[in-house]
């Protein structure tokens, strides 16, 4: 029986889809059977980021409405045998599927896969409810911006009301080192202080993420990039390994130096 993990954020554009694609990829790299599920019906992106757009025949809504079997809608990844994608429909909207239908599909997938990564749409409406319905665990993605942290806080509050979902864990995405250095970006400590949930990883903002998304190749496949290393660490933590927050430690050294300079703590 596999585990279903929803990747959510509340706010749009913080990197849910990129995170879903890369976390799915790193788990597949570890030899796990992974299914990515795009629940952003009407605004599907995950297929594009994975470079699988041209292979889609059926989608999530077709499965929910009984137009095809679940297996027919699954798109096999071209790089990994063990990685599949259940794409969202592009021609309808979020109301064309109900949370209980979604839960049924996820439950069926759990029998065949080790990990089901559910890419949640932005917002807190039906799309969010659909995405969360079948999830066992949740990863909240935020960036070091006040607006994004505020929305993450809201989402954590909503996730805490979902009894079947374990306490959410946090990814801080798009950390820009030069802004941290100048003190113009929220520090990781500050974000953790507000959100008060477990941190599962931090990802440095990396230009390579954009170019690899455009190529349809998740950046996690390119081990030389810092972002890829971050995603690989996140993957290992999901698998239950204790991986030190390597990047964080590096920056903590830096934080301490700044604090020392400012005479804090």
């Amino acid at each position: 029986m596999g585990e279903a993990i929803v990747v959510t954020s509340g706010k749009g554009g913080v990197g849910k889809t990129t995170t879903s694609a890369n976390v799915g990829t790193v788990l597949a790299l570890q030899g796990k059977k992974v299914c990515l599920v795009d629940t952003d019906i009407g605004l599907r992106n995950l297929d594009v980021v994975m470079g699988l757009e041209n292979r889609i025949i059926y989608d999530l809504v077709d499965v929910a409405q009984g137009r095809c079997k679940l297996n027919q809608a699954l798109v096999k990844d071209k790089r990994f045998e063990c990685l599949s994608l259940l794409p969202a429909a592009q021609t309808t909207d979020k109301d064309s599927i109900q949370p209980d239908q979604m839960k049924k599909i996820i439950d069926t997938l759990k029998a065949d896969f080790d990990y089901i990564i559910i890419d949640c749409p932005a917002g807190i409406e039906r799309g969010f409810k659909n995405a969360v319905a079948g999830a066992d665990h949740a990863i909240v993605v935020t960036t070091p911006e006040i607006s994004s942290v505020r929305d993450a806080d809201r989402i954590i509050g909503l996730l805490e009301q979902e009894k079947q979902v374990s306490p959410p864990r946090l990814i801080i995405n798009r950390i820009r080192q030069h802004l941290l250095k100048s003190g113009e970006m929220l520090e990781i400590d500050e974000i953790m202080n507000i959100l008060a949930i477990d941190l599962i990883g931090i990802v440095i903002d990396d230009d390579g993420v954009i170019s690899s998304s455009n190529k349809g190749e998740p950046i996690a496949l390119n081990p030389s990039s810092k972002a890829a290393m971050a995603y690989r660490n996140i993957g290992r933590r999901i698998l239950g390994e204790t991986v030190p927050l390597m990047d964080l430690d590096e920056k903590q050294g830096f934080f301490h130096r700044v604090k020392a300079l400012l005479g804090m703590r």
Partner: peptide, 10 residues
Amino acid sequence: TMVRIVRSGQ
């Protein structure tokens, strides 16, 4: 007496 975090929107 309540023991919790009152988050955004709550």
